[in-house]
Simulated scan of single mutants.
Amino acid sequence: MTRSPVIETEGLTRRFGDLTAVDDVTFSVQEHSIVGLLGRNGAGKTTVMQLLTGQDFATSGEIRIFGESPVENASVLSRLSFIKESQRYPEDFKPKHVFKAAPWFFEHWNEEFAQELIEEFRLPLNRRIKKLSRGQLSAVGVIVGLAARAPLTFFDEPYLGLDAVARQSFYDHLLADYARHPRTIVLSTHLIDEVSDLLEHVLVIDDGRIIIDQDAESLRGSVTTVAGPRHAVERFVEHREVLASDRLGGLATATLEALTPAERREAADAGLELGGVSLQQLIVRRTRAHASEFGAES
């Protein structure tokens, strides 16, 4: 079944004076998918999301959300939900006021699901927003983002204030509700290993540029780690490109691009162990490699 693109950008650029926060970015996101928008602090993730949701204006390039520009476009914006860590509410508001107002903005709002989440996160509905802990404030955001069931939902790390148990609950509810009510979800996070099993597609941005735009499953299988006696590892990788390596006494490991079946047999015959690399490790290594290349270009 062919899926239509919900997000399309072409040559998207945003400059702030001499600073280029987003640099000639082109990508698309298919409907009914969970996508990770990943990268270091200051890489450009939040700026991209602000551009996609019509909260900022591009210096150049094109954006199409549901086939249209999001800027001052009510028909597009009414189908979006953008939840961020720095979400602000009127200080005199209480969580119950936020949830009471939510149906005015989100036509797919599900009150029953919201109440289930309120109970799950043990959220005090009658406490003023300014009196909430960071975790409780994060819970308000994730409940709105989940219960809104917007066709396109952006989560810009609003769950960072949650403890590990609450974050896992968020991931579980997101995945279960996504299965029942498919929509397009874009997750921005530093906690890559925590969300790796949720992601169907990965976008990695570094210094304002997209450096990875790949299906998550193929990305996971794109590298292999070989480990064993140092001399055997060094002999095996001698004429191959090494993405990363480590040595400890007489042992060594090396990370290479995915090996062919013949190369895997060769490694096994050499007494080497083969393994995978976590999505987080892979992205860290690719980002470091890009930083080295970018520095060389500069």
Rank of each mutant, 00 (worst) to 15 (best):
P124Y: 09
F236W: 09
V98H: 03
G36Q: 00
L175G: 07
V237L: 05
S138M: 11
I143W: 07
D56H: 08
A258E: 10
G54M: 04
D197M: 11
D156I: 08
A176C: 08
L152S: 03
R64V: 00
H97D: 15
A58D: 06
V98K: 02
E85G: 05
P95H: 00
M1Y: 13
I185L: 09
I283C: 02
S196H: 09
A58M: 05
I65E: 03
G228A: 11
L199M: 07
L80V: 00
V98E: 09
L160K: 10
E8Q: 13
R285G: 06
R134M: 06
A43R: 00
W104K: 14
I192A: 02
T59D: 08
L203S: 09
R40H: 11
Q30Y: 02
S69C: 11
K96D: 12
N73I: 02
L19V: 15
V165P: 04
Y89C: 01
L146P: 03
K96M: 06
I283P: 01
D206N: 15
E266Q: 14
Q214I: 06
A270M: 09
I205P: 05
L175V: 13
L146N: 11
G249P: 05
L77F: 08
V25L: 15
E10C: 10
Q136H: 07
G141T: 08
K84I: 10
A262D: 14
P5W: 01
T153I: 05
V71M: 12
E194L: 04
L146W: 01
V204N: 08
T53K: 02
D172H: 13
I118Q: 11
W109P: 05
L219R: 08
R3N: 05
V202K: 08
P261Y: 07
I192D: 00
T59H: 10
H108I: 07
H181L: 01
E111I: 11
E257M: 12
K84Y: 10
L160V: 15
A244S: 14
I283L: 14
A296S: 13
N41P: 07
A252M: 03
F113H: 11
R3G: 00
L259D: 06
P182R: 00
Q87I: 09
A232L: 10
K130Q: 12
A176G: 10
L282I: 08
S298G: 15
L77M: 08
H181G: 04
R209H: 12
E107Y: 12
G11K: 08
R230C: 08
A147Q: 04
Q281K: 12
L160H: 11
Y171F: 13
P124W: 09
